[in-house]
Amino acid sequence: MKVSSMGYQVVVVAACVALAACAGTHPVRYTGLESSTQLQPNANDSSGRVPYNYSSGANWRKYSNAIVEPVVVYSGADSQFENVSEDQKKELAEYMRAQFTEALKEKFTMMSQPNVHTLLVKLTLTGAKPTKQFVGTVTKFDLAGGPYNAVQSIRGKEGALSGSVSYAVEIYDASTNQLLSAYVAKQYPNAMNVKATFGAMSASKTGIKKGAEDLIARLN
Rank of each mutant, 00 (worst) to 15 (best):
S35M: 04
S36W: 01
L39D: 02
Q40K: 15
Q40V: 15
Q40W: 01
N42H: 11
D45K: 04
D45G: 02
S46W: 05
S47Q: 07
N53Q: 15
Y54P: 03
Y54M: 06
Y54F: 15
A58I: 10
K62A: 13
Y63T: 04
S64W: 00
V68C: 14
Y74N: 07
S75G: 14
G76E: 07
G76H: 08
G76P: 12
A77G: 06
Q80V: 05
F81Y: 14
F81C: 06
E82K: 13
S85D: 10
D87G: 06
K90L: 13
Y95P: 00
T101G: 05
T101W: 01
T101M: 10
E102Y: 10
E102F: 09
L104W: 00
L104H: 03
K107A: 09
K107T: 11
T109F: 10
M111G: 01
Q113Y: 11
N115G: 11
T118H: 03
L119Y: 00
L120Q: 14
L120Y: 01
V121T: 03
K122C: 05
K122Q: 15
T126Q: 08
K129W: 04
K129V: 09
T131D: 09
T131F: 03
G136K: 06
G136L: 07
V138T: 10
T139F: 00
T139L: 07
K140D: 09
K140L: 10
A144D: 05
G145C: 09
